[in-house]
């Protein structure tokens, strides 16, 4: 899976087809903004409203931030693969694969909002912003997070 990223290739974007893009990134926070921008380009061209795109961007933002902080624990050479794909109904599926230690689902709890803390809101937001959230731990290494958003016809 190693891509041997060069210094100037911290983020690569590959358009697979009209319905699918792939992105590879190193686990560094500064790449979250360009990923958000790529997702805006992709989703806005496929009928998603600005409100829905905001929700998608924030959910992916939170997922990537969690991988960088808790998965790779700041190790900047860690790799993350992200794909975004629409199906024949126009619904969006995003898969985020990391190669860090697998997520411990027992510890992955959504925050109690009554207990106001200054961290740990990410999982709560992901669960509330997307229509479906699934963690696939079946691969030899890492976690594959699958996020689904239905296209709302307005």
């Amino acid at each position: 899976m190693s891509k041997n990223f060069k210094n100037d290739e911290e983020l690569t974007v590959r358009v697979v087809s009209d319905e699918e893009i792939h992105m590879s990134m190193l686990a560094v926070g500064k790449l979250i903004k360009p990923i958000r921008e790529q997702l805006y380009e992709f989703a806005s061209g496929r009928g998603f409203s600005d409100d829905q795109i905001y929700e998608i961007q924030l959910a992916v933002n939170e997922a990537l931030a969690n991988i960088i902080k808790h998965g790779y624990k700041g190790e900047k050479r860690g790799e993350i693969e992200l794909s975004a794909e629409t199906n024949r109904f126009g619904d969006l599926e995003i898969a985020i694969q990391d190669f860090a230690e697998k997520v411990d689902l027992a510890k992955l709890v959504s925050r109690d909002l009554e207990d106001v803390q200054d961290s740990g809101l990410g999982v709560y937001l992901i669960n509330n912003l997307m229509d479906e959230v699934e963690y696939d731990l079946s691969r030899e290494k890492g976690t594959r997070l699958i996020l689904k958003k239905k296209l709302k016809q307005e």
């Binding site: 979250i32 958000r36 803390q117 200054d118 961290s119 809101l121 990410g122």
Partner: peptide
């Protein structure tokens, strides 16, 4: 124009 939970967390910490 945009804020994620990390930024929100800093405001919560500031208020506390």
């Amino acid at each position: 124009t945009y804020m994620d939970s990390a930024a929100l967390g800093v405001l919560v910490a500031g208020l506390k």
